[in-house]
Design a protein around this nucleic acid. Structure first.
Length: 352
DNA sequence: AAAGCGTACAACCGCCAAGAA
DNA sequence: TTTCTTGGCGGTTGTACGCTT
């Protein structure tokens, strides 16, 4: 037995909304509000629509101050960066972009942004890499100490080897805060993202959460803060630059492995184990294909995107205070956040 | 001119979590 | 404590429109 439907589907109109329906819904909500009950609302105002449909119509289209289309470069960067950070949490991403709806952003990502990021550069890089492959360089010759690098690194002199996965700084750096010396902020976000607090034997708080990071990956976040609070985030959501940009040391637990976050991320990018890459395919794209199948590889990942493309787009920002690669590496090593994140409350407010 | 195809966007579906009963 | 209702979310589908052949 499935659950009862939220409305009588036989007596409910589907499909595009007529202007009269829009006007009715808008007028009522503007005057009375939703009344806290979307299911009852359509009956109240005589609309033959499902309550959920009304809610969606209001939130995505009729609500005041909604922006449609015309995404700016800055918005592109924010979307990309947050997508890398938290995955397809469209509502959270939308919270960073005033006037944008999650549906809008989701559509924009799926139909345009992904393709925009792929584009011409992708083809050039693929052909370059293939050319280099034919010259006999093996992608398995990964140096043992790979330098985390950005656009200004030595890798740029070597068109063959893709940049290592550089966790891009989240771009709400200028106006938008991140987390510095503010465990409450992190807790809030983690909880918002699905985490739960508990206490360990020592009485210190910890967070256990399910994240969007690769399904089989666990990440421990241990606060190096003065209050010795210990944050443990095991799993899928809290991957990423948000925390890399914080003062937290990231101790990966990847199927029993140990190492730095960077090394685990490298492992994922270069891994041939599909489980480790689950959900992150867009990050490595043909880079992995080249790794695994050599020069005979056929590029098939039409919709996927590798980290190089993603990170280069994101890091091509004109924003002045975006971390450069060496700074970034240093921040990873030292656990020091380089960005000005003094305006924390704003972000918290938006996350809520 | 029309059929075929691709793209963009609106809307729907189904699952899950929170809170009320 | 359990069950039910509702809101919220992400994934998917439907459809209108424009472009190409």
């Amino acid at each position: 037995m499935g659950r009862a439907p939220c409305c009588d589907k036989d007596n409910v109109k589907k499909g595009p909304w007529a202007p009269e329906e829009d006007a009715t819904l808008k007028a009522y909500i503007e005057e009375h509000g939703t009344g806290g009950n979307w299911i009852a609302l359509p009956q109240k105002i005589g609309l033959k629509r499902c309550g959920k449909s009304c809610r969606l119509r209001w939130l995505n289209y009729l609500r005041p101050n909604i922006k449609h289309g015309g995404f700016s470069e800055e918005e592109d960067r924010i979307i990309c960066s947050l997508y890398v950070s938290i995955g397809s949490r469209w509502s959270i991403i939308a919270a960073q972009l005033p006037g944008r709806t999650d549906n809008d952003i989701k559509n924009y990502w799926n139909t345009r942004l992904k393709k925009k990021l792929l584009g011409k550069q992708r083809k050039e890089q693929i052909s370059r890499r293939k050319l280099q492959m034919k010259k006999g360089r093996s992608p398995l010759d990964i140096p043992s100490s790979i330098v985390v690098s950005g656009n200004d690194n030595n890798n740029s002199q070597d068109p063959y080897w893709p940049e290592l996965p550089v966790m891009p700084p989240v771009p709400y750096t200028n106006q938008e805060p991140c987390f510095v010396n503010d465990h409450a902020s992190i807790r809030k976000l983690l909880v918002k993202l699905g985490g739960r607090f508990s206490s360990d034997d020592n009485g210190s708080q910890s967070i256990n959460m399910v994240t969007h990071f690769p399904t089989h990956t666990s990440i421990d976040l241990q606060a190096s803060s003065q209050d010795n609070q210990k944050l443990i985030a095991s799993s899928n959501v809290c991957s990423s630059s948000m925390f890399l940009n914080s003062q937290y040391n990231i101790l990966p637990i990847l199927e029993g492995q140990s190492g730095t976050f960077t090394s685990v991320f490298e492992e994922m990018c270069y891994s041939t184990n599909p489980q480790k890459l689950n959900g992150m395919e867009f990050l490595y794209g043909e880079m992995r294909e080249l790794n695994t199948s050599g020069s005979s590889s056929v590029i098939t990942s039409g919709d996927s995107m590798d980290w190089l493309e993603m990170s280069s787009l994101i890091s091509s920002t004109t924003t002045s205070n975006v971390m450069n690669s060496s700074d970034y590496q240093r921040s990873l090593q030292q656990g020091v956040l380089l960005q000005d994140c003094s305006n924390d409350e704003d972000f918290n407010h938006r996350v809520q």
